[in-house]
């Protein structure tokens, strides 16, 4: 347990030293929040009602899908995995540590938005903070699950941004955070439902748990966990 906790704290520090994660988990989401928060609340009446949720969904989706896969490719696409194996460290440790660390970073970024949005843009604080933060954690976990599939499935570091953006763009564009889903054509509405961002956003703005929004996220989490186990086995044989 001591080794595991040291591993988590070390991974946290490594992520801070890594400019990629710092940029994708903090700098870009918070800059986006600073700019778009001002624009949304100026041009869209009522945007302050859902500003915290929409900016958080954007930041989490970006931090997870674009920030996490390079860290995983660094471990599993290189000789690091051999060093882990040779020194008796379980191969899943890299995946677990990077995921926990990313969860903490994304949660901190979300808290910053939660605190700053009402101060800067008069954003409305969610009615039920407990339900909101629980929904947030579930949404972060599902997004990280998707990111893990990219990180373990793609062998080359150069190809990860392409796969990440392929999921990131439709996730944010079709989730309803930029404009109401009702404005989208039916096909795009349906397509948007295969990404966690639309379900996470719905759950976070409802401020309560409903099975209708929760089960798709839990299903995605279960599928990504199963796929990651298969990919991890494949990677260990590679």
């Amino acid at each position: 347990m001591e080794a595991f906790l040291y591993g988590v704290s070390l991974q946290w520090k490594l992520d801070i030293r890594s400019r990629t994660l710092l940029t994708t988990c903090y700098i870009v989401p918070l800059l986006f929040f600073g700019v778009m928060g001002g624009i949304f609340t100026s041009v869209m009446p009522g945007a302050e009602q859902t500003l915290i949720q929409s900016m958080t969904v954007f930041g989490v989706t970006m931090g997870a899908l674009i920030g996490l896969p390079p860290s995983l490719v660094e471990i599993y696409g290189s000789d690091i995995k051999k060093v882990y194996k040779a020194n008796g460290v379980p191969l899943c440790l890299g995946l677990v540590l990077t995921t926990i660390s990313a969860l903490i970073h994304l949660f901190i970024m979300s808290i910053l938005i939660y605190i700053l949005a009402p101060l800067l843009f008069d954003a409305v604080i969610p009615r039920n903070p407990a339900a909101y933060f629980t929904s947030l954690v579930i949404f972060i976990l599902v997004s990280l699950g998707m990111a893990c599939m990219i990180g373990l499935g793609v062998k080359e570091q150069a190809k990860t941004p392409m796969f990440s953006i392929l999921i990131f763009l439709p996730s944010t564009m079709l989730s309803g955070i930029m404009f109401p889903v009702e404005m989208l054509p039916e096909a795009f509405k349906i397509a948007g439902r295969i990404f966690p961002a639309s379900w996470g956003y719905r759950m976070m703005i409802q401020g309560k748990f409903s099975l209708e929004n929760l089960w798709p996220l839990l299903l995605m989490l279960a599928v990504s966990a199963a796929v990651c186990i298969v990919l991890l086995k494949k990677v260990s044989r590679r």
């Binding site: 001591e2 080794a3 040291y6 591993g7 070390l10 520090k13 490594l14 030293r17 890594s18 660094e74 471990i75 290189s78 000789d79 690091i80 051999k82 060093v83 040779a86 020194n87 008796g88 460290v89």
Partner: peptide, 26 residues
């Protein structure tokens, strides 16, 4: 085991690696 081609995360400090692996090996 010292491998022919070995690597570690690029931002880990030398002593952090020593501590991590020694903790893991008890």
């Amino acid at each position: 085991i010292q491998l022919q081609s070995a690597s570690l995360p690029e931002h880990i400090k030398a002593m952090e690696a020593v501590v991590l692996f020694s903790k893991w090996n008890h």
